[in-house]
Design a binder for these strands. Structure first.
Lengths: 146, 146
DNA sequence: TTGACAAATGCAATCTAGTTGCATATAATA
DNA sequence: TATTATATGCAACTAGATTGCATTTGTCAA
């Protein structure tokens, strides 16, 4: 029996979220799956154009909002004046944003959980989610400067 | 000698930042000083209108950007698709945003410093700043629900 | 396999947040 | 109080995002 590494077809996930599997949606899911960094709508639009899937910008916004509503994606902001999106199935993580080159790196082993417990107790505030981003300079850019 | 509690005149701060003390700027500084929560441009505009200080929206944006450039204010985002501003002279803190009533509470004694050191070591990423927000439900809203 | 229908899309108009160029007004300084 | 760099008003503009409506298309049942 031949075992091939097949590009994962996302229609199951879409159907699971009660969404029809249209070409644009499938392509956007695949882009999200293969992209390391959280992406903005312009990136999605460019990608669709490059893969000859025509989709109006209104459609792209509608799709990504729908994804976010259904919990497939998470919307984040990095002080740019626009939103970025990433799969919410990604394990809990935070972002290191290099202010020099713009690279966004994930960091996973960050002990915010302890902070949360502390805050819930002290402030009597029920935390549903949090966002934590670090801005600075990545290893690469540090070396270039020196 | 009479000791009166006088509304602080912010012209010194403005001059310190090499900015002329115009009515709009003074008013915005005062608003920022007396407001607990980070505020958006619409809030500033309304306030100016209410205090009969006429200022075009372009002016308000220019002022608040100027403040941020000169380090008087900090620009933050709370996943709303717009910016909010707060005095950067405020002691280091983070925000608890109630998703029910929209109240934004500050939290000051939060040990992110330790996380930072950890990350700088592990990831070789030089951190310049960070943003940390917690979304959830405040005490008040929790009680209303019950 | 096909037909029906809810759901999705395209298109164009619209909205909000934010920016810019330029002429005029004004705070600071001498 | 005259000068001048700086700030503002106004109007036009940009980018990101949303919406109404007519048309198209996935999906599912027959």
């Amino acid at each position: 029996m031949v075992q091939a590494r097949i590009q994962h077809d996302c229609s199951t996930e879409l159907h699971g979220a009660d969404l029809k599997a249209t070409p644009a949606r499938l392509a956007i899911m695949q882009l999200l799956e293969k992209t390391e960094q959280p992406i903005d709508v312009a990136t999605i639009t460019d990608y669709l154009k490059a893969t000859n899937i025509k989709a109006d910008q209104a459609t792209v916004f509608r799709i990504i909002n729908m994804f976010t509503d259904r919990g497939l994606t998470k919307q984040i902001q990095l002080n740019e004046g626009k939103f970025r999106y990433e799969l919410s199935s990604k394990p809990e993580h935070h972002h290191l944003i290099c202010q020099q080159c713009g690279t966004i790196e994930d960091i996973s082993d960050c002990a915010v959980g302890d902070l949360e417990k502390d805050i819930e107790k002290k402030k009597d505030f029920k935390i549903a989610s949090h966002s934590l981003e670090f801005y600075g300079m990545c290893r690469n850019c540090q070396q270039k400067i020196v």
